[in-house]
Structure formats: structure tokens, C-alpha cells
Design a protein around this nucleic acid. Structure first.
Length: 121
RNA sequence: UAAGCAGGUCGGUUGACCGUUCCGACACAUGUCGGAAAGGAAAGUCCGGGCUCCGGAGAGCAAGAUGUCCCAUAACCUGGGAUGGAAGCGAUUCCAAGGAAAGUGCAGCAGAAAGCAAACUUCCAAGUGUCUGAUUAGGUGCUUGGUAAAGUUGAAAUGGCGUGGUAAGAGCACACCGGUCUGAUAGCGAUAUCAGGCGCAAGGCAAACCCCAUCUGGAGAAAGGCUAAGUAAGAGGGAAGAGACUGCUCGUCUCAAUUUAACCCUUGGGUAAGCCGCUAGAUGUCGAUGGCAACAUCGGUGCAAGAUAGAUGGUCAACUAUUACAGAACCCGGCUUAUAGACCUGCUUAUUUU
RNA sequence: CGGGGCGUAGCGCAGCUUGGCAGCGCGCCACGUUCGGGACGUGGAGGUCGGUGGUUCAAAUCCACUCGCCCCGA
């Protein structure tokens, strides 16, 4: 039975932790986001999300939350396919021309994960 | 029917599956069941309060805000009603709407003149010179006096306009309009109406300085309190002191009693983990009563968002439907700004029909 | 949460205090100079003064709201 839950322990919460992954981890570039990967000491996979966006943005908070939700939803439904014991950080880019639907995020994130080699079938 | 004015409402709903945060119950060690979970602007942070701390929060100046009147409100750069003014055929809308005889300042260009009101060009009268001319008159210059009607400008020119009057003119006189003063009446009042007086001496700009009246202590949930850890070395200052109210003065209070040390302040450096504050309140809604209304009082009824890198989502199906603006961060009352689409109510004008 | 500043020609800035002609430097264009280029000289073009509204006879300037950018403190 697959577990689709996404609890608080699976998040990277501190800004220092995310900074560590972005500084020391491997970087993989995508169309809408970058993925940083770093092997951690625990047996758990942890996820952090960073949204970069210009200051002058229409509906700033709404768009930011929507992007984070999309990435979180993708990870929640597909985390059984991801290798254990790594820290992932998605760095999502938002601009006024980008519109975020769940399907776009799904395809992009899937490609990124395959490219990074953390996808297992 | 068309055009328009004013006000208001909604801003997705239902079901299934997978998830997030919180609460309750049951099991009992991480599960099961049930419930709740972002707006009209949550936004901008433009005002006003509550709340917390600054020792007890003082006086004056400075600075800032407001500015017709009355009322409402906890309070307001808020709202309601009225007055006056402006726009519109009208419904209706808009107005920072006190004071210019307290003082200072400003007004380019144009124009005779732009702020002591006089000078200038005119106009008129008298005197006189000169020319034409011939004994009337006309032109032109000078002197004296009268006058401010005319003077092409300008945003603005010392009330407007007409008649009489006069040598020419003038509120010099009169009528109407405007202004101002006094009185009466109506109104709580701003003010309005009427009557009488004053011929009117002393324009504009205060969103220029300013004056007058009223109001304002400061800092803000990173407020503030508790627990844990930490608060090292070093540098500077300490009575002609430092800190408490920020710009200044006074008053009051605390520290501190003199080469070092201790203590205080500033800097430097260190920690930024958890709990409380943290959601029931000047509360929403319905009805009655009072009030033109804003609103108030009384009664019924409802109120479980409280996250902490920050929770509301995704997929499928149906309804025209992926579709506006947009995400609570201590809480309220307003203001301002953004807003797809849909709907409702009242009113005005024009046209047509009855 | 609180405080401060900026927006004017393609770029960098002045003018705002005390309202009245929108200017300076670099750059651009044309001509001259040179065998040619640069430099130099002469002339010229280029502006909703971030936006909307108000006060005023008149607004880049004063006032209100608003958009964007930057900085500082806790």
C-alpha cells in the first residue's frame, strides 16, 4: 500500500538547511525550475521549495503559494519513486509570462528528477 | 425602448478519491471517527482607536494635523443631515468651504497704470503765443485749473448698468442689481427672508509665510512576559556626566562618590530553540422602539482560521465554469486602490403607444 | 512594523526653495577641417517633466491620491 501523506518531518524547514543544499549539492537545470540534490545522513527524503519572483508581481502571494503547492503535490504523489536519503530543493522561477498549472509542473519536475538520477521505478 | 443617475448583493455550488493545519471523542502510541479552516477588498499601510511597555508620563516653546454648522461615534484626514458655492435639461454629483482693516511676501509677458493710488494720453474751461484765415471760425504750442466718463492690454484695473445732470465729468442725484451695517422674524446653528441705513473709503493669492480656534507624549506584537542556552576577549564614555520624551528649555527621577576595580551606558561579539500573548469582540445577524439619517437602546440567535519558511490544494464528473482582483500573520472602525461575469431596487430625461 | 529618498531628451544630471523661457554634459544627425579617420569648429533634431485629479490667471515646481525603483532601523 502506497503512502501518499506528506508530513512535517519530510520538509526542509530552516533557511540554513536549504542554503547548505544549494551551496554543496548537485545542480540540475530545467525550464521552469532548478533542482539541487544533496545526500543527507538520515534514511529519509526531505523536500524544500524556493520560489524566486520579481518584487513587482501581480498577485504575488497567491502565485507563490500556488507554485509551492504544485511542487508539493507532485512530490506527495510520486515520492515512492524517489531514492531515499537525499535532500531535494526545487528552485522555482516565476515571471509574469509563466502560468503554473499542475500538469506543467508535473512534466517539468518529472524530467528533472529523471535527469538527476533520483527516479527509480 | 434608448440614454443616464444613485444604492445594494453574489464572487462559485454539489459529489467521489488522495492530502495539509487545528479541535473533540475513542483507542492507546500512532491510528480511527466526527467537526472547522482566507476576503470584499485579507492589499496599499493613508488615518483613528483598543492592547502592551516606556519609573508616576508634568509645564512651555517648536513641529505636525484639522478647519461652514449641527449631530453620530471609543476615536478619526470617518460618517449622516443641513447651509453656501460650482456643474448638469434633470435624477444627481463635486467642494482642504476660518481669517486679506495683525504683519511680511508674490503677480512673468502685455499694458498708461499691477497696489499708498497717483502720474501719463485724452476730455473741458480760462489766459496767452503762433499759423491759416478775415474779423464768426479752425489748427497747433505753453501756463493755470477741473475731471477720472474714454484709453485696444490682462486672469484681475478701485462696484455694474441705464437715465438725469454738467463746460467736461463724477454715487453728484435716481431706478434696478451687487456689497456692507443695523434691526426684526424663522432656525440649536451655519444661514435665509424682510425692513431701514450707508453711495460703497479698505482688490486677488493663505493647497505662499502667517494669524486664530481645536487636537496630538513616545515606541510598537521583532510590543511584552516565562523557560532553556548564551551573555567571551577587546574598544570608547561616565559630574561641565549618562539615561529616562524623539528637536529645545525647565521641572522631576534613577545610576554613579572620582587615577585601579566594581557599577552604568554605547559599541563589539553571542544566541536566535520552545511556550504564553493568540483570538468572544466598541462582534455579526434578525426583529422591535427612537431618530430624516449616520446611529443608539432592548430582545432573540450565531461565532471552533490561528498558521510560524508559514496550513485551504490536486484529479475526475455535472451546472455556459481552466478563467476577475487577489492569500489571514495582535484585533477593530474607516479611507484609498484593484476587480471577469451575473443579478436586484429606486429615480431622471427623451421618444413611441394607450 | 517604522523612517527616508528618487522618477525631467538614448545615458548621467540641473531647474522645484521663492510658480511664468525646460536646460547642461556625453551621445545622435548634417556641414566644415583632413588624402581618410579621430580630435576640433559651426548648425540642428530629440521632452505626455512616472500617472490621475485639484489649487491658481498660469504647475516640472504647491497639494492629495496612485505606480515603479532604491536605501536605512527594529
Amino acid at each position: 500500500m502506497k503512502n501518499f501523506s506528506f508530513s512535517r518531518d519530510e520538509k526542509l524547514k530552516k533557511y540554513d538547511q536549504i542554503k547548505l543544499v544549494r551551496a554543496n549539492g548537485k545542480k540540475h537545470c530545467g525550464a521552469l525550475a532548478n533542482l539541487y540534490i544533496r545526500i543527507n545522513d538520515t534514511s529519509r527524503t526531505r523536500l524544500g521549495i524556493v520560489v524566486r519572483m520579481p518584487k513587482a508581481f501581480k498577485g504575488r502571494a497567491v502565485q507563490r503559494n500556488r507554485a509551492k503547492r504544485s511542487v508539493r503535490e507532485f512530490y506527495r504523489l510520486n515520492k515512492h519513486n524517489v531514492v531515499k536519503g537525499v535532500d531535494l530543493v526545487f528552485e522555482v522561477f516565476l515571471s509574469s509570462s509563466n502560468t503554473y498549472k499542475y500538469n506543467d509542473v508535473k512534466i517539468n519536475a518529472f524530467n528533472l528528477c529523471k535527469k538527476a538520477g533520483v527516479w527509480q521505478t
